[in-house]
Design a protein around this nucleic acid. Structure first.
Length: 586
RNA sequence: GGUGUGUUAGUUCAGCUGGUUAGAAUGCCGCCCUGUCACGGCGGAGGUCAUGGGUUCGAGUCCCAUACACACCGCCA
């Protein structure tokens, strides 16, 4: 038996017990005649004391140990002479009788403490050391508890957890696939699933009624702080449901998660905001609702004052930033620079300072004080506020103003990670026009059903068609999304046509699904939640990386494993693969 | 594919308008210390300033390229 107790559980009530502990050395404090050792495991830290009542051999061993040595300590629980109120085990310590070095440790390249001194790069390379740190352990513990609560809730609602394959068929729509060469079928490839979308629909055809899976998905696209090439979804599908049924059950699920994991109760129904409203009021299909600063369209008010920038613009929109009238010229200039960055792409920023004494703006030359006041009032500004206005093509300027709204909110400290503002965004457009390829793409995916009342426009005016699609959004992050699917083979064929698929191409890529729909597909729908994002949302972090045990870096590499890497010629030969030279960069 | 920021001791960073021996903190090593818990005191070791070019009498510092890291845009049905 290596241990009788963990390093986190002994208390004052255990004084007098003989115990054996095992763990890692966090810190050694040698005071000469006595030595304190902080012994750490996943459960906590317990102080070991070695002094003149320890044997000479124990004192000798204690003098040799270094950070991260793995020790076994036999000793007696005693009350501390000076207690430490900062840790749960702070009232007691272990009087060491015997110290066994179970394993020595090379000096780690960074400190393994609550706040490490190591940089990202180094911590990723030695991820197993970083994972010893309490913050990472808390994150993975949170993730574990959340996964358990997901299963508990969905099981209680009759959902069956069913595994679907990872080696499936490539479908070029959507994200780039990761592919796996097949040895037994030379020159053919499997694809790793971007999501188990079609498979879960087939499970509905198969009559399983309610399915879920906490499942890895793969997308070969560039990474972000909240995007990894392999990530985990809570994937769900239900039969005989309409949109309202899906929203109802997963709203209850979300509330269950907030309550059981975070101790937060939402008594009201989550807001349901049509996509067009989200775009016009917040410039985003995933609005951050932790604060106001709603947009208002001032196109008609602002035009016709001989200010050509406005007069030539399609859409003029702004918002009032509360309490920002005190912003200096320098701060306004900095925000102007912010929206002019290529990432945002704004052309310029108009401001109106609203004070008790009156209004002052960057457009005073063109507008009377009365007109400026009217605009400010339309934007909902009160004395002490600052209005920001931008103009341009409608959806472009809305998106740019969204970036500014978030930036101002960050500066005002309104993006509080402890606050949660969940909502559903509904009534998404069915299609998105792509300028580059001059065709419509499915905004969600090609199995999403159109609103029945909009089906009439499918061929005449596809841009007008709304979908039975919905996203779950919280704090400006898309946490999940789904739709009511098409269960009718004829309608599915029509959608493929609208998306520019020839019948042959549709048959080749999705024939298996359309064929299945001929055999009695139930009406069905579902959604999927990004589990990593949900974890980072609950954990109050912007990046999902520290909620994944072994994440990839910005370039999709695992720097610990040094993957991807080359493979042996014999492996290539087996797969009939030949490598091509990579063009040199100029 | 693009934009930005960064790369200096084991680690985290400072190093100004180019100037003579590149600093701090922390970690590490040694000695001292009986109540520490960010222990303390004294001493010590530790650097190809990412790489390659260029400008200059002289480059950690200026310029160009490359590599790597991070954030973002494109991309992510």
């Amino acid at each position: 038996m290596y241990r009788s107790n963990t390093c986190g559980e002994l208390r004052i009530t255990d004084v007098g017990k003989s115990v054996t502990l095992a763990g890692w050395v966090q810190k050694v404090r040698n005071l000469g005649a006595m030595t304190f050792i902080d012994l750490r495991d996943r459960y906590g830290i317990t102080q070991i004391v070695v002094n003149d009542s320890s044997s000479a051999q124990t004192r000798e061993t204690a003098s040799k140990i270094g950070r991260e040595y793995v020790l076994q300590i036999k000793g007696c629980v005693i009350e501390r002479e000076s207690k430490n109120g900062k840790i749960p085990t702070g009232d007691i310590e272990i009087q060491a009788q015997e110290i066994t070095i179970l394993n020595e440790a090379t000096l780690p390249p960074f400190t393994i403490e609550e706040d490490s001194d190591g940089g990202d790069d180094l911590r990723m390379k030695y991820r197993y050391l970083d994972l010893r740190r309490p913050p990472l352990q808390r994150n993975l513990m949170l993730r574990h508890r959340m996964a358990q609560e997901v299963r508990r809730f969905l099981d209680s609602e009759g959902f069956m957890e069913i595994e679907t394959p990872f080696l499936i068929k490539s479908t070029p729509e959507g994200a780039r696939d990761f592919v796996v060469p097949s040895r037994m079928s030379p020159n053919e490839f499997y694809a790793l699933p971007q999501s188990p979308q079609t498979l879960k629909q087939l499970l509905m055809v198969a009559g399983y009624d309610r399915y879920f899976q906490i499942v890895r998905c793969f997308r070969d696209e560039d990474l972000r702080a909240d995007r990894q090439p392999e990530f985990t979804q809570i994937d769900c599908e239900m039969s005989f449901v309409e949109q309202e049924d899906v929203l109802d059950i997963f709203e209850r699920w979300a509330k269950h998660m907030f309550k059981t994991v975070m101790g937060i109760e939402f008594s009201n129904k989550f807001l349901r905001m049509p996509w067009i409203e989200a775009m016009e009021k917040y410039g985003s299909d995933k609005p951050d609702m932790r604060f106001g600063m709603e947009f208002a369209n001032i196109t008609s008010l602002a035009k016709g004052h001989s200010f050509s920038v406005f007069d030539d613009a399609e859409y003029i929109v702004g918002f009032a930033a509360p309490g920002c009238a005190s912003y200096s010229r320098k701060q306004i200039d900095a925000l102007t620079e912010f929206i002019k960055r290529p990432q945002v792409g704004g052309r310029g920023l108009v401001w109106i300072r609203v004070e008790e004494s009156g209004v002052k703006s960057s457009i005073d030359k063109f507008f009377s004080a009365e007109d400026v006041r009217e605009i400010a009032s339309k934007l909902g500004a009160k004395a002490g506020d600052m209005c920001f206005i931008m103009c341009g093509p409608k959806f472009k300027v809305l998106t740019q103003l969204c970036a500014l709204r978030l930036e101002v909110a960050s500066q005002l400290g309104l993006r509080d990670p402890k606050k949660f503002a969940p909502l559903w965004v509904i009534d998404f457009p069915m299609f998105e026009w792509d300028e580059e390829t001059q065709r419509f793409y499915a905004m969600h995916h090609p199995f999403t059903s159109p609103k029945p009342e909009d089906v009439q426009y499918l061929e005449s005016d596809p841009g007008r068609v709304r979908a039975n699609a919905y996203d779950f959004v919280c704090n400006g992050t898309e946490i999940g999304g789904g739709s009511i699917r098409i269960h009718d083979a004829k309608l599915q064929a029509l959608i493929f046509k609208c998306l520019g698929f020839t019948p042959q191409k549709a048959e080749e890529q999705f024939g298996f699904l359309m064929n299945a729909f001929k055999f009695g597909a139930p009406p069905h729908g579902g959604l999927a939640f990004g589990f990593d994002r949900l974890c980072s949302l609950f954990g109050g972090a912007d990046s999902i990386r520290d909620f994944i045990a072994f994440p990839k870096n910005n370039a999709g590499r695992d720097v610990m494993l040094d993957a991807p890497s080359q493979i042996d010629q014999s492996q290539l030969d087996e797969l009939y693969l030949a490598l091509k030279e990579v063009p040199q960069k100029k």
